[in-house]
Design a binder for these strands. Structure first.
Lengths: 202, 202
DNA sequence: CGAAAACATTAAACTAGTTTAATAAATTAG
DNA sequence: CTAATTTATTAAACTAGTTTAATGTTTTCG
């Protein structure tokens, strides 16, 4: 009983999120959201590992994930974090059905609503507005990545850190400095130097 | 007469490009392509400047553009190049109708087919498959940018240069080293060192 | 609770990439 | 065709960020 109530609360989050992007009737929303299935992932558990084909798109209702890549030298680069109300997938692997180069790992005990590729394709065919939903969402994600690309090319690690702190204060407090450094594209040693320098300025 | 023939050749390129992404009837293709208008931009001319709202989406049929940002220190970062068969816009400014942070400049005498935001919205409403077209295209662009982001975080300038040369040999030969360096995120002085180092290895 | 593991900080030597400036070569425009 | 501008190269001093390693702190978990 409790579990059922909790699941419907999570679907409520999803419905709210969809409404932020497009206008859908109550029936359409219901029909689409019914295609999602709830998954619990414990801290340090993986939703996806390198080499697997990503067969889902997920909507985080609880917890925190990191999406990262491990390079030839064994260093981790974090593409993005996903907390409540964020979507996660490896769009490259999902669209092209190729082995993923990414890991998606829970940094806290987490809950995700996932839709399979088959059900997503089904929605595209049956609910034309879902096509619009994902067009709009992909556009927004792309805009965010484009801004980050410009920042990475033009700003120092220090200002990237300061801006990340300002933009995501609620996320940063849930992250270790190791994770923050891997997102900023620097070592945790250098992040420590930056933090000291900032602290001294005050 | 010549001009008309040339325009229809360019529309042919556009039609071929659309077919690569989705399946459309001949009528639908025709109807959509008729919404595009041809524009000629001379070398060193601008399709968009910082501060302007980007009101178009463009398809390059001839020439070469660079899409770049100028940072606080006056340095240029190139987001991407666009040659024949590539699309160009500032998706951020276009979608949000906010002033652009980007310049789009022709590096050669160029031709573009442009569609206005109004006509694009019109297509979304009247030709549902156009929604799919742009969802699919945005996904592909996003995948490419995501791969580039990972490369920029994990690889040295030297291997980024080598891989750029391998991936776009036909584009690189039309670019000065200054442009290539601005794309790789390094100075042209350092690019010169890299080129020397590579030449000595052989 | 206590041991082990993960995390944050500091220092010091190092390197990838920048800066400035000078020179030669190639393009462009009148 | 020639002058002016842009481009490519080189050198040398410099800096943002890395590497390695040591130390103390915090978190995890049996």
């Amino acid at each position: 009983m409790t579990a059922i109530l909790r699941t419907s609360n999570m679907k409520e989050l999803l419905k709210q999120n969809i409404r932020k992007h497009i206008v859908l009737s109550e029936n359409e929303t219901e029909e689409f959201c019914d295609l999602f299935e709830q998954k619990s992932i414990q801290k340090k558990g993986f939703l996806l590992r390198e080499g697997e084909v990503c067969k889902f798109e997920g909507f985080v209702t609880k917890g925190l994930f990191r999406v990262y890549h491990i390079d030839q030298n064994g260093f981790e680069q974090i593409l993005y974090f996903a907390v409540e109300n964020w979507w996660i997938t490896d769009i490259d692997s999902f669209c092209n059905e190729t082995p993923s180069q990414l890991y998606i790992e829970a940094l806290e005990d987490s809950e995700v609503l996932v839709i399979t590729k088959i059900n997503k394709e089904f929605s595209y065919a049956n609910l034309p507005k879902i096509e619009k939903l994902f067009r709009v969402m992909t556009q927004k994600t792309h805009v965010a990545l484009q801004r980050r690309m410009i920042d990475n090319l033009s700003k120092t690690a220090e200002s990237r850190y300061i801006e990340f702190r300002e933009k995501y204060p609620h996320i940063i407090q849930r992250l270790s400095n190791i994770q923050i450094a891997a997102y900023l594209g620097i070592t945790n040693v250098f992040l420590s130097n930056i933090r000291k320098k900032i602290a001294l300025k005050k």
